[in-house]
Design a protein around this nucleic acid. Structure first.
Lengths: 142, 142
DNA sequence: ATACTTGCAAAAGATTTGCCGCATG
DNA sequence: CATGCGGCAAATCTTTTGCAAGTAT
């Protein structure tokens, strides 16, 4: 059983063949399909279709939304016009995007998190969510 | 002449009545319409229409894209499905978005900027650009 | 004059939804 | 068995574009 299917069970998310498949493909996006890519709905549909040709893209949309609302996967809106998804991890992380290769590197920085909370507070707000993306170029060594 | 119209002239961007009007409305979005809002195309079209009923929304889309590519205004893709714009300013700033009202508050925090640079460096990258958005709810005072 | 602009409506691309038969718990 | 789910196509929403006519330099 895939990691995400497990989470569905724990959270009482009803399972179907389609959802199980999407769960599997999402789970595998951590390991099987390169170093944790962040597939969009179209890509997910392609991958799922290779396992079962009868799954509608509407179902992928509905499922991905369902999983997201259940706190099982995470949506990202990078500047591409369409959303990309990744399995939700224990520890929150942000993304550094290599503007030359498009590669995405995940990182964690508690100090920044802390400062964000303080900034919001100072403005009279309670921080609910945030998005931090670093666009950068690789430093060639030597 | 509006601030943005001025910039168009300096950059050799061809001007028309429509563009002048859109330039004016964008320029005014810094002061006239509340504490610097970040209007989307629909809102811009409404404001422009109140001055000239014959301006098509397609023109607003085209103009806003033109201004952006000329480095005169800045586009933001917050989590709302549509882009919002603001005049490009000297000093970089980030945004806090009130997830209830949609209101946007700008802030500057040098410490966070500094940490971002360090994070990138540690990963072997040179920071070129970044995006930081805080999504928050107003703290009710009582 | 000539290349650029505009308005309109149609097209496009991503995502959502109504309907209805079907599967799940 | 009742409720929820999935497939399909149509609908939405934002943004883009082809075309013919008008405009800026």
């Amino acid at each position: 059983m895939s990691e995400i299917e497990e989470k569905c069970k724990n959270k009482g998310v009803r399972l179907t063949d389609q959802r199980r498949l999407i769960a599997k493909v999402m789970s595998d996006s951590k390991t099987t399909y390169g170093s944790k890519d962040h597939p969009d709905v179209d890509e997910l549909h392609k991958r799922v279709s290779s396992l079962d040709k009868n799954i509608s893209i509407a179902t992928v949309y509905r499922t991905v939304k369902l999983f997201e609302e259940a706190g099982i996967i995470e949506r990202h809106d990078f500047k591409e016009g369409k959303s990309r998804y990744e399995p939700l991890t224990e520890e929150h992380h942000d993304h550094l995007i290599d503007i030359n290769s498009g590669e995405i590197i995940e990182f964690v920085n508690k100090d920044i998190e802390e400062l964000q909370k303080k900034v919001a507070q100072k403005l009279g707000y309670k921080l609910v969510d945030h998005k931090l993306e670093l666009y950068a170029t690789k430093i060639k060594k030597n």
